[in-house]
């Protein structure tokens, strides 16, 4: 399992404004270990999926140039109190993590 995702969501009218922090090393495969001088193997999130009450509303595809501990902010239409927003990711080593929040 990957590290837990941090998520904050705020409802403004029927728009859910969501910010998520996805702790992950996001190794590009081009960085050398400062001690050994060896290349550090690529390890990065490739897919992020956002679901609103179980419905996929946004999918992000990432390469190695997304920063360490990725941050993503987006907004979902037609949201209401009690709705569930779920964020999940998969990386190139098939690690995964997911979290969800209920709109207040």
């Amino acid at each position: 399992m990957g590290k837990p995702i941090k998520i904050r969501a705020k409802l403004k009218g029927d728009i859910a404004e969501v910010k998520a922090l996805l702790p992950h090393d996001m190794e590009s495969g081009m960085r050398r270990d400062p001690d050994s001088g060896e290349l550090v193997a690529a390890h990065y999130i490739t897919d992020v999926t956002i679901e609103h009450n179980g419905e996929q509303v946004l999918v992000a595809y990432w390469g190695t140039a997304v920063s360490k501990n990725p941050y993503i902010a987006f907004s979902i239409k037609g949201a209401a109190v009690g709705d569930v927003i779920k964020v999940s990711w998969t990386d190139n080593k098939s690690d995964t993590s997911e979290t969800e929040t209920t709109l207040k």
Binding site: I15, S28, M30, I50, H52, E55, Q56, V57, L58, V59, A60, Y61, W62, G63, T64, A65, V66, S67, P70, Y71, I72, A73, F74, S75, I76, K77, G78
Partner: peptide, 25 residues
């Protein structure tokens, strides 16, 4: 960047057309 494509987001009618992310340069 060595591989220029950093990120791509598939949107849907349910998402507002605003996306924030952080990239390496």
């Amino acid at each position: 960047n060595p591989t220029p494509l950093a990120a791509s987001f598939d949107m849907s009618p349910k998402t507002v057309a605003v996306i924030s992310v952080r990239i390496k340069m």
